[in-house]
Design a protein around this nucleic acid. Structure first.
Lengths: 154, 154
DNA sequence: TATTGTTATACTCTATAACTATA
DNA sequence: TATAGTTATAGAGTATAACAATA
């Protein structure tokens, strides 16, 4: 998501309903970029390409490759390469499922579980901007975010 | 920005301060993905690669290539290829700056200005989730977003 | 010498198509 | 026949390095 600098545009040239949406869009984009930068900054010292770092966050206990693809919003072929990279580094094992032998479950090794735990804590321990909000503002913010993404109301 | 499915993680396994941050992060990622999908859906019929569609939103009146690179958060060499693509389609002109002849300003053609205007209105006319919030909730949401990105408090 | 932009090239992320093995 | 995963390949998006023109 990229800012489109609606803010920079002259207010006079914008329709009344459209302008607030632009401001909201841009500020959201800015925050989301802060988060992305934060993720990369934190993940980099762990020496993983960022798709792998994301994947390892999503593997808890055991998860099929298909399910990982669904969570990460990507094609199965890309899951294969992520799994290869994580396996090479000794962070996950592929285990053929006992009930359906087509399925391979990704299981964190001890090393992988430890890395994941450190990564997650460093990521969420001090999220950009969180300290700018009071406890109750955080609650409101999360509630509003949830309302925004709620498919019930779309 | 990608969800890390903190929601799926067992609450018991997470430190008290870390978990709300994870939920906020994931919900924000979800919203930001909705926005990105919306952008691509709206921009696609215009037949521009998405970096070009973003760029055209950022060009109002006249802007140097360097400034465009700064706004789009990318390297100058990439700005060159975006400008090439936009120029080929007759959407912008390069004009050598009168005061400093190293600088090339990108200027929207009439066709470009018209495309930009249509694109922007379609983008912001019905932003995903906006209708889920009341007028005053939108104000609060924007205010909280601004607080989150405020560098003063970081 | 420093800055703006360009060219050539290479890297990262990701999808498509054809395939294997199971079901 | 349909599904899970793999392989080979290709494409988009983006950066790096060396360069030209101007300051």
């Amino acid at each position: 998501m990229t800012e489109l600098r609606w803010k920079g545009a002259g207010a006079a040239s914008q329709a009344a309903r459209v302008q607030p949406a632009g401001e909201l869009y841009d500020t959201l984009a800015e925050l989301s970029n802060h988060m992305k930068a934060h993720f990369n900054r934190v993940a980099q010292p762990f020496g993983l390409p960022s798709p792998c770092a994301k994947a390892i966050c999503l593997i808890e206990g055991s998860i099929s490759m298909k399910e990982l693809g669904a969570r990460i919003h990507c094609d199965g072929s890309f899951v294969t390469s992520i799994a290869d990279a994580l396996e090479e580094r000794g962070l996950v094992r592929r285990e053929t499922d006992h009930e359906d032998r087509r399925i391979k479950n990704l299981v964190l090794t001890r090393k992988g579980a430890e890395l994941r735990s450190r990564l997650m804590h460093e990521l969420f321990d001090d999220l950009p901007g969180m300290r700018n909000l009071t406890e109750s503002e955080r609650d409101s913010f999360l509630a509003l975010l949830r309302k925004m993404v709620d498919p019930q109301n779309e």
